[in-house]
């Protein structure tokens, strides 16, 4: 009778004892939760997943609809016409053909800010972890303060400062603020302290390598996992920034996609299907990046927060 339970068959050890083997990848039978508990959890998790995913699914369908279909048709399926083409034309017309340019602008700002910002962060984090220099502890304090600083509050005075310097409405007004990431320095510091062996640095120094060469050929490689995380973090933060370009940028050619979309939706009675298409196309690069770099952020994005 025991052989016919839902949990599979009995097995026999070489010396003739009969036992019921555990399933591979599952906890030992004695502490495994009941099937009921697992089913209930699954149902709960699935419901919560609907909350997080349905709006994204809805955007995909809404972006394909004409004005009439948006009003009348079922939200989670296509309407009578699939109007992606028409909505694209309307998106281009509303934005005076600038929409692709805005997406490219966002890609440009995010890529440059993330690349430079990652290098600056890792260099500073490495310096604080591996060098004794005067002001080191003060700098650590500054970084921790910066980590907890409401950055949006800085944007207003930064606008004043940048307009005195005459760099508002240029790419520098976006790039300079976005390359500074206290979180990146913090993560770089934690990571360098734990994964760059001091012996290795000393060995390289004895072999006559200069500090710059040690940094660029050895340290950066050791810090690669942290760098991917910092890169992703700055990239997303730059892409998501809205208040900064809203204050700094006035010419349409320099707008990132968030600002462009906002301008579009704040028109009187815009073509909503086209706005949804713009929203969808404006986030696709980010979602692609996230899916592509999944194994990095899953391990790294929160790593710094645990040790702090």
């Amino acid at each position: 009778m025991a052989t016919k339970t839902a949990h599979g068959k009995l097995a026999t050890t070489p010396d003739g004892l009969r036992y019921r083997p555990s399933h591979e990848g599952l906890p030992p039978r004695s502490i495994a939760p009941s099937k009921l508990a697992r089913t209930l959890t699954l149902v709960l998790l699935a419901f919560i997943a609907l909350y997080f995913l349905l709006p994204i699914v809805w955007v995909v369908f809404a972006s394909s609809k004409t004005k009439g279909d948006l009003l009348s048709s079922f939200g989670f399926w296509f309407g009578n016409d699939i109007a992606w083409g028409a909505n694209w034309d309307s998106l281009m017309a509303w934005t005076q053909n600038l929409f692709p340019r805005w997406v490219l602008n966002s890609i440009f700002y995010s890529t440059v800010a993330a690349t430079v910002g990652t290098l600056l962060s890792v260099a500073a984090g490495y310096a604080m972890a591996k060098f004794q220099f005067p002001g080191r502890n003060a700098m650590l304090g500054i970084v921790m303060t910066g980590l907890l600083m409401p950055v949006a509050l800085l944007t207003v005075p930064m606008y004043l400062l940048f307009s005195q310097l005459g760099i508002t409405n240029t790419i520098w007004a976006i790039l300079i603020p976005c390359i500074v990431s206290p979180f990146g320095v913090f993560l770089g510091n934690v990571y360098a302290a734990s994964s760059v062996p001091t012996e290795l640095l000393e060995a390289a120094r004895i072999d006559g390598a200069g500090e710059a060469r040690i940094f660029f050929t050895m340290v950066l490689r050791l810090l690669a996992p942290a760098m991917v995380t910092i890169f992703l973090f700055i990239f997303v933060a730059t892409w998501n920034n809205f208040l900064l370009p809203l204050m700094m940028i006035s010419s349409a050619e320099l707008k990132p996609v968030t600002l462009g979309l906002y301008g579009m939706m704040s028109y009187f009675d815009p073509n909503r299907g086209a706005v949804m298409l713009g929203a969808l196309l404006g986030v696709l690069p980010l979602i692609a990046l996230f899916l592509f770099l999944q194994r990095f952020w899953q391990a790294g994005l929160a790593a710094g927060s645990v040790k702090g």
């Binding site: 997080f52 995913l53 994204i56 968030t258 979309l261 906002y262 986030v283 980010l286 979602i287």
Partner: peptide, 9 residues
């Protein structure tokens, strides 16, 4: 996944 969508969007 929603974190990958800018707050504005």
């Amino acid at each position: 996944l929603p974190y990958a969508i800018p707050g504005l969007v």
